[in-house]
Simulated assay, not measured.
Amino acid sequence: MAIEDDAKARAVVGGVDTHKDLHVAAVVDEQDRVLETRSFATTRQGYRQMLAWMRSFGDLQRIGVESTGSYGAGLLRFMQQAGVTVLEVTAPDRQDRRKRGKNDDLDAQNAAHAAFAGNRTVTPRSRDGMIEALRVLVACRKTAVTARRIALQMIHNTIVAAPDGLRDLLRDMTRMQLVRTLAAWRPDLTSYREIEAAYRIALKSLARRYLELHDEIADLDTMIAAIVDELAPNLVTRNSIGHTGAAQLLLTAGGNPDRMRSEASFAALCGVSPVPASSGKTVRHRLNRGGDRAANSALHIIAIGRLRTDQKTKDYVARRVAEGHSKLDAIRAIKRYLAREVFALIMQRQKEINATRIAA
């Protein structure tokens, strides 16, 4: 009985190495000593068994989980719904891994050690709600855009090598005129052994593929725009911020943007915060090549749009260039300002949403 009371009073921390079919979990005590390691299935029943097993050692303080954006997404949702604090554990130190080696048990134990010490851990993005729905739709759209571009490239490459009669027929058409013309062709499918008929069949197939992807992207854009308008209507009303860019910035902030302590954290997350690169008597900053490059790209597109349409931005760039800075340096400064503006808008909307939930 005394042993059970001691176990209940003991504070413990968990760690999980995630995989597709099995998660390997470890538990450490209040002195960071490994208590046990065990594997669990990646099902709701497995998650329940893992949580009960961890709590059997004492008061579960938090869990360090690897890959919460992929293999660990289901576990993250389950643990958050159960009221457990979850920390995302980043990659371990390479030197330490070379010394100790690597296997699933060690990875789970390293995740528990990291969660215990607070090293190599960050608060993960939430994986539920409309932000997660937005992420899935944006990812689907991205692959559709890539496939559409490849289909168009194949159309042009096929026309280049086509017989002269076909090339002359299609030479001066615009993109959509070309695609719709090819999609409307009715080639003889029984003559596919002949070179011109084979080219007509291939071009028709590619054109129809392009149009199908074009319609699919349009449908996804409609759904993405509806979610963005509901999540952050104040964001898309700003100059040069469209629904696609706003969607990416919302994804970067996540469904729990309050995990970031300041707009400087969001700027670093977007890769637009200047990084000190001073040495000796030289004091300078260099370009931040880290962060979410998709968010960085979205801010860059917004900055270019502001540079073309906003007089204040034009005056600012002209002033920086007159001071001896390059135009690219001025654009980087604009991106840093945009990160501050976007973060303020996102946090303002988040407060409104939280206030509505409390009132309800």
Rank of each mutant, 00 (worst) to 15 (best):
A247I: 06
H156R: 14
Q109N: 10
T146M: 11
F116L: 06
T68Q: 02
M176F: 04
R308G: 11
R125V: 05
I3G: 05
N288F: 00
D188C: 11
I241S: 04
L189M: 13
I241K: 02
V12E: 01
T143W: 10
I301K: 10
Y337I: 10
V16L: 07
D315T: 13
G290V: 03
Y47W: 10
I155E: 03
R171G: 08
V65E: 02
N296F: 01
A202F: 04
L134M: 11
H325N: 12
D329N: 12
S297D: 12
I358W: 03
I353S: 09
F40P: 05
A295D: 04
D315L: 12
N256Y: 01
V283H: 13
N110G: 06
I3M: 14
E4P: 01
A226C: 02
G290A: 13
G254T: 00
I241A: 00
N157G: 14
D21G: 11
L249M: 15
A133M: 07
G129A: 08
A162R: 01
G242W: 09
A108S: 09
V145W: 08
T190Q: 09
D29V: 09
R286N: 07
T356L: 14
P274R: 02
R340I: 01
G290D: 13
L251W: 04
T146E: 15
T85S: 07
D164W: 05
I150Q: 14
H113T: 00
I201V: 13
R306C: 15
M154Y: 11
G280N: 05
A355F: 05
C140H: 10
I201G: 02
M54L: 15
M260L: 15
H156N: 14
L250G: 00
R186W: 11
T356C: 09
V24A: 00
R357F: 06
L250H: 06
L106C: 08
H300D: 14
I224A: 07
E196I: 11
I159M: 09
A277E: 10
R100C: 10
L189S: 12
V84P: 06
T222P: 06
T190Y: 07
H156V: 11
I3L: 14
T174Q: 12
G255Y: 02
G129N: 07
R306K: 15
P274K: 04
R336V: 05
L169Q: 15
K204A: 08
L22A: 02
Q311D: 13
G69T: 05
A264E: 09
N296T: 03
